[in-house]
Protein backbone atom coordinates (compact mmCIF):
# COMPACT_ATOMS: atom_id res chain seq x y z
CA UNK A 1 0.00 0.00 0.00
CA UNK A 2 1.24 3.48 -0.87
CA UNK A 3 2.57 5.48 2.09
CA UNK A 4 1.38 8.95 3.12
CA UNK A 5 4.98 10.06 2.70
CA UNK A 6 4.83 9.37 -1.03
CA UNK A 7 1.59 11.32 -1.39
CA UNK A 8 3.17 14.21 0.52
CA UNK A 9 6.14 14.12 -1.82
CA UNK A 10 3.75 14.46 -4.75
CA UNK A 11 2.06 17.37 -2.97
CA UNK A 12 5.46 19.00 -2.65
CA UNK A 13 5.98 18.83 -6.43
CA UNK A 14 2.91 21.06 -6.76
CA UNK A 15 3.67 23.09 -3.64
CA UNK A 16 7.27 24.13 -4.24
CA UNK A 17 6.40 26.72 -6.91
CA UNK A 18 4.03 28.46 -4.47
CA UNK A 19 6.56 28.43 -1.64
CA UNK A 20 9.23 29.86 -3.91
CA UNK A 21 6.91 32.59 -5.22
CA UNK A 22 5.83 33.64 -1.72
CA UNK A 23 9.40 33.66 -0.41
CA UNK A 24 10.42 35.95 -3.28
CA UNK A 25 7.42 38.25 -2.60
CA UNK A 26 8.27 38.28 1.13
CA UNK A 27 11.95 39.10 0.56
CA UNK A 28 11.09 41.83 -1.96
CA UNK A 29 8.54 43.44 0.37
CA UNK A 30 10.87 43.32 3.35
CA UNK A 31 13.81 44.70 1.35
CA UNK A 32 11.74 47.61 0.06
CA UNK A 33 10.39 48.29 3.55
CA UNK A 34 13.87 48.16 5.00
CA UNK A 35 15.14 50.61 2.41
CA UNK A 36 12.29 53.08 2.78
CA UNK A 37 11.67 52.88 6.55
CA UNK A 38 15.13 52.47 7.95
CA UNK A 39 17.60 53.80 5.39
CA UNK A 40 15.65 56.62 3.72
CA UNK A 41 13.20 57.84 6.41
CA UNK A 42 15.20 56.69 9.48
CA UNK A 43 12.07 55.39 11.21
CA UNK A 44 12.27 53.32 14.43
CA UNK A 45 12.97 49.59 14.18
CA UNK A 46 9.46 48.74 15.45
CA UNK A 47 7.97 50.10 12.26
CA UNK A 48 10.16 47.72 10.23
CA UNK A 49 9.35 44.82 12.55
CA UNK A 50 5.65 45.51 12.16
CA UNK A 51 6.10 45.30 8.38
CA UNK A 52 7.77 41.89 8.76
CA UNK A 53 4.88 40.66 10.87
CA UNK A 54 2.18 42.06 8.59
CA UNK A 55 3.91 40.47 5.60
CA UNK A 56 4.23 37.16 7.37
CA UNK A 57 0.61 37.14 8.53
CA UNK A 58 -0.84 38.01 5.14
CA UNK A 59 1.49 35.75 3.14
CA UNK A 60 0.99 32.79 5.47
CA UNK A 61 -2.76 32.93 4.83
CA UNK A 62 -2.14 33.44 1.11
CA UNK A 63 0.08 30.35 1.22
CA UNK A 64 -2.69 28.31 2.88
CA UNK A 65 -5.11 29.44 0.15
CA UNK A 66 -2.63 28.52 -2.58
CA UNK A 67 -1.88 25.18 -0.96
CA UNK A 68 -5.59 24.33 -0.65
CA UNK A 69 -6.37 25.41 -4.22
CA UNK A 70 -3.27 23.80 -5.78
CA UNK A 71 -3.66 20.44 -4.09
CA UNK A 72 -7.43 20.29 -4.63
CA UNK A 73 -7.37 21.32 -8.27
CA UNK A 74 -4.12 19.64 -9.37
CA UNK A 75 -3.05 16.87 -7.01
CA UNK A 76 -6.43 15.33 -6.22
CA UNK A 77 -7.55 14.83 -9.86
CA UNK A 78 -4.10 13.79 -11.06
CA UNK A 79 -3.49 11.32 -8.27
CA UNK A 80 -6.96 9.87 -8.81
CA UNK A 81 -6.05 9.37 -12.47
CA UNK A 82 -2.98 7.44 -11.26
CA UNK A 83 -5.20 5.23 -9.10
CA UNK A 84 -3.92 6.62 -5.84
CA UNK A 85 -6.19 5.36 -3.03
CA UNK A 86 -8.76 8.08 -2.45
CA UNK A 87 -9.31 7.55 1.29
CA UNK A 88 -5.60 7.78 1.86
CA UNK A 89 -5.38 10.84 -0.37
CA UNK A 90 -8.21 12.58 1.50
CA UNK A 91 -6.69 11.91 4.91
CA UNK A 92 -3.23 13.00 3.77
CA UNK A 93 -4.52 16.26 2.27
CA UNK A 94 -6.47 17.18 5.43
CA UNK A 95 -3.57 16.25 7.73
CA UNK A 96 -0.97 18.04 5.58
CA UNK A 97 -3.13 21.19 5.65
CA UNK A 98 -3.39 20.86 9.42
CA UNK A 99 0.38 20.39 9.78
CA UNK A 100 1.13 23.43 7.65
CA UNK A 101 -1.29 25.53 9.70
CA UNK A 102 0.37 24.29 12.90
CA UNK A 103 3.85 25.16 11.57
CA UNK A 104 2.69 28.64 10.50
CA UNK A 105 0.97 29.12 13.87
CA UNK A 106 4.16 28.07 15.67
CA UNK A 107 6.16 30.69 13.74
CA UNK A 108 3.45 33.21 14.60
CA UNK A 109 3.69 32.25 18.30
CA UNK A 110 7.45 32.85 18.24
CA UNK A 111 6.92 36.23 16.55
CA UNK A 112 4.24 37.10 19.10
CA UNK A 113 6.33 36.05 22.08
CA UNK A 114 9.66 37.48 21.03
CA UNK A 115 8.83 40.45 18.83
CA UNK A 116 5.27 41.69 19.39
CA UNK A 117 5.23 41.14 23.16
CA UNK A 118 8.75 42.52 23.58
CA UNK A 119 8.74 45.54 21.29
CA UNK A 120 5.19 46.38 20.36
CA UNK A 121 2.99 45.92 23.41
CA UNK A 122 0.64 48.88 23.82
CA UNK A 123 1.54 50.11 20.36
CA UNK A 124 -1.49 51.11 18.35
CA UNK A 125 0.27 51.27 15.00
CA UNK A 126 0.15 47.61 14.12
CA UNK A 127 -3.10 45.77 14.83
CA UNK A 128 -6.57 46.74 15.64
CA UNK A 129 -7.45 43.76 17.84
CA UNK A 130 -6.75 44.86 21.37
CA UNK A 131 -6.10 41.37 22.61
CA UNK A 132 -3.49 40.96 19.89
CA UNK A 133 -1.29 43.58 21.46
CA UNK A 134 -1.62 42.27 24.99
CA UNK A 135 1.61 40.73 26.29
CA UNK A 136 -0.34 38.65 28.80
CA UNK A 137 0.55 34.97 28.33
CA UNK A 138 -3.08 33.76 28.33
CA UNK A 139 -3.99 36.37 25.71
CA UNK A 140 -0.94 35.34 23.70
CA UNK A 141 -2.09 31.74 23.58
CA UNK A 142 -5.71 32.76 22.88
CA UNK A 143 -4.68 34.87 19.92
CA UNK A 144 -2.40 32.08 18.71
CA UNK A 145 -5.34 29.67 18.95
CA UNK A 146 -7.61 31.95 16.96
CA UNK A 147 -4.86 32.57 14.41
CA UNK A 148 -4.57 28.79 13.99
CA UNK A 149 -8.35 28.29 13.69
CA UNK A 150 -8.74 31.08 11.12
CA UNK A 151 -5.78 29.70 9.12
CA UNK A 152 -7.16 26.18 9.16
CA UNK A 153 -10.62 27.49 8.24
CA UNK A 154 -9.13 29.34 5.27
CA UNK A 155 -7.39 26.14 4.13
CA UNK A 156 -10.51 24.01 4.58
CA UNK A 157 -12.85 26.55 3.01
CA UNK A 158 -10.75 27.01 -0.14
CA UNK A 159 -10.24 23.26 -0.46
CA UNK A 160 -14.02 22.90 -0.10
CA UNK A 161 -14.66 25.52 -2.82
CA UNK A 162 -12.30 23.81 -5.28
CA UNK A 163 -13.56 20.31 -4.56
CA UNK A 164 -17.15 21.53 -4.91
CA UNK A 165 -16.25 23.08 -8.25
CA UNK A 166 -14.56 19.92 -9.46
CA UNK A 167 -17.21 17.47 -8.32
CA UNK A 168 -20.58 19.18 -8.62
CA UNK A 169 -19.86 22.22 -10.80
CA UNK A 170 -18.33 25.66 -10.47
CA UNK A 171 -21.73 27.37 -10.30
CA UNK A 172 -22.10 25.99 -6.74
CA UNK A 173 -18.81 27.67 -5.77
CA UNK A 174 -20.39 31.04 -6.35
CA UNK A 175 -23.31 30.04 -4.11
CA UNK A 176 -20.88 28.94 -1.39
CA UNK A 177 -19.04 32.27 -1.56
CA UNK A 178 -22.32 34.19 -1.44
CA UNK A 179 -23.46 32.18 1.60
CA UNK A 180 -20.22 33.06 3.42
CA UNK A 181 -20.42 36.74 2.44
CA UNK A 182 -24.10 36.87 3.41
CA UNK A 183 -23.32 35.36 6.82
CA UNK A 184 -20.52 37.90 7.35
CA UNK A 185 -22.91 40.69 6.35
CA UNK A 186 -25.60 39.52 8.79
CA UNK A 187 -23.06 39.18 11.59
CA UNK A 188 -21.25 42.42 10.71
CA UNK A 189 -21.90 44.01 14.12
CA UNK A 190 -20.71 40.95 16.07
CA UNK A 191 -17.61 40.57 13.88
CA UNK A 192 -16.74 44.26 14.31
CA UNK A 193 -17.14 44.01 18.08
CA UNK A 194 -14.98 40.91 18.10
CA UNK A 195 -12.16 42.53 16.19
CA UNK A 196 -12.32 45.89 17.97
CA UNK A 197 -13.05 44.87 21.55
CA UNK A 198 -12.52 41.11 21.51
CA UNK A 199 -16.12 40.46 22.63
CA UNK A 200 -17.67 37.07 21.82
CA UNK A 201 -14.20 35.59 21.57
CA UNK A 202 -15.21 32.19 22.98
CA UNK A 203 -18.25 31.85 20.71
CA UNK A 204 -16.10 32.75 17.71
CA UNK A 205 -13.61 30.01 18.65
CA UNK A 206 -16.38 27.42 19.07
CA UNK A 207 -17.94 28.39 15.71
CA UNK A 208 -14.56 28.06 13.97
CA UNK A 209 -13.92 24.65 15.56
CA UNK A 210 -17.34 23.40 14.42
CA UNK A 211 -16.89 24.83 10.90
CA UNK A 212 -13.46 23.25 10.59
CA UNK A 213 -14.78 19.84 11.64
CA UNK A 214 -17.71 20.08 9.19
CA UNK A 215 -15.44 21.18 6.32
CA UNK A 216 -12.97 18.38 7.12
CA UNK A 217 -15.76 15.81 6.85
CA UNK A 218 -17.19 17.33 3.65
CA UNK A 219 -13.76 17.58 1.99
CA UNK A 220 -12.92 14.00 2.93
CA UNK A 221 -16.25 12.80 1.46
CA UNK A 222 -15.59 14.79 -1.72
CA UNK A 223 -12.17 13.21 -2.21
CA UNK A 224 -13.39 9.73 -1.26
CA UNK A 225 -16.10 9.84 -3.92
CA UNK A 226 -14.12 11.86 -6.48
CA UNK A 227 -14.59 10.70 -10.08
CA UNK A 228 -11.96 11.45 -12.70
CA UNK A 229 -14.17 12.60 -15.58
CA UNK A 230 -11.54 14.24 -17.81
Amino acid sequence: MISSRNIKRVFFHVDKTYILTLIIVFILNISINFLTNIIIFSQPITSFLSQIIINFLSLSYVYLIMYAVGQSVISVPYLTSLNCPRKHLGKTLIISGLKRTIIITFIFLILKLFIINQFMADSSTLFFIRIFLSSNLIDTFSITGIYFLIGYFIFNYFAYLCLTGLTVGWQYVLSSILVLLGTCFLLFKQITLLFVFGSGFNIFIIILIILNIILNIVNYKYIKTFEYKY
Binding site: V73, Y78, S81, N83, Y230
Partner: peptide, 22 residues
Protein backbone atom coordinates in the same frame (compact mmCIF):
# COMPACT_ATOMS: atom_id res chain seq x y z
CA UNK B 1 -15.56 0.83 -5.28
CA UNK B 2 -14.03 2.18 -2.05
CA UNK B 3 -11.42 -0.59 -2.04
CA UNK B 4 -8.06 1.17 -1.93
CA UNK B 5 -5.99 -1.99 -2.02
CA UNK B 6 -7.60 -3.28 -5.22
CA UNK B 7 -7.52 0.16 -6.85
CA UNK B 8 -3.74 0.20 -6.49
CA UNK B 9 -3.43 -2.95 -8.59
CA UNK B 10 -4.73 -1.14 -11.66
CA UNK B 11 -3.08 1.34 -13.99
CA UNK B 12 -4.94 3.21 -16.70
CA UNK B 13 -2.50 4.74 -19.16
CA UNK B 14 -4.11 7.61 -21.04
CA UNK B 15 -2.83 9.18 -24.24
CA UNK B 16 -3.00 12.63 -22.70
CA UNK B 17 -2.83 14.30 -19.27
CA UNK B 18 -5.80 16.63 -18.90
CA UNK B 19 -5.06 18.10 -15.47
CA UNK B 20 -4.02 21.73 -15.63
CA UNK B 21 -0.89 22.39 -13.65
CA UNK B 22 0.55 18.94 -14.35
Amino acid sequence: KDNDELTQRICLAREVISVRGI
